[in-house]
Amino acid sequence: MSWQIAALQQLINGLAVGSVYALIALGYTMVYGIIKLINFAHGDIYMLGAYFGFYAITMLKLPLLPAMLVSMVAAAIVGVLLERIAYRPLRSSPRISVLITAIGASLLFQSTAQLVFGASFRPFPQAMPFRRIQLGPVFITNRQLLIFGVAVLLMVILHVLVTYTKFGKAMRAVARDKEAALLMGINVDRIISATFALGSALAATAGILVGMYYNRIDPYMGMMPGLKAFVAAVLGGIGIVPGAVVGGLLMGVAENLVVTLGSSTLRDAVAFAVLIVVLLFRPNGLLGKKGMEKV
């Protein structure tokens, strides 16, 4: 296989992983857009989503798609509770306190998951027989197709929701100016809860897709993808919904191309190198606009 073909193959793999990053990044971006918080625990909600899916399939004996729905709902509830209990009391506190709380929440999810689900990894039930499809010189697996399908579907739904519905308009209003939105009669608390629910549901799906893709889940699986999805959100321009998708795909592809070029342990460094470069040279992200502090 020549390197071009290898690169093409990695491009496909990268897009698959990137779609997952994009799904997680959407949650980061929406939450950041609305309350300017880096929800550090978001990656762990993705992890919980994977476990919810796992139990829905193994214990409730549900087929894949209903299991996904169950997991989305459960994760949404966790997300809403997280905001209620941990973040809402701190809404007017310095952002650093909120960030520390978010780190605490993340640790709490991880250690609770370890206690409840066990520390070691588990194979994810294969709710779908594995198949490889030849596409000219490269392969694409049916799991990758599933990832693309689900990711695109969810993104389209989200887009419609944010752009055309009343909820979407309210959400954008809150993101722009909380006080004004309040004066317009928008229930800001409810919109924030809904945003957490939405973001958590997307992350849960991502968790299940990854569980199937790599065939394993563990209580710490949320850390790295969570951080990388955050990087993706920053790369695209945090707070900007299409930015999360662009950023996620780019990150996935970049990582996989680095793997083609050399060591796979360097993969994790790529994300952070990208992050630092973006933050230094284009702090508002690829799709972001410039802002300045008023004195």
Binding site: I38, R95, L99, T265, A269, F272, A273, L275, I276, L279
Partner: peptide, 28 residues
Amino acid sequence: LPALRLRGDYLAIATLGFGEIIRVIILN
């Protein structure tokens, strides 16, 4: 140096990134 341009939570993530890069370099 990034601290010159970044504030608050962005800086936090960037330093976390730096720390991980150092770790990956040591790993290699």
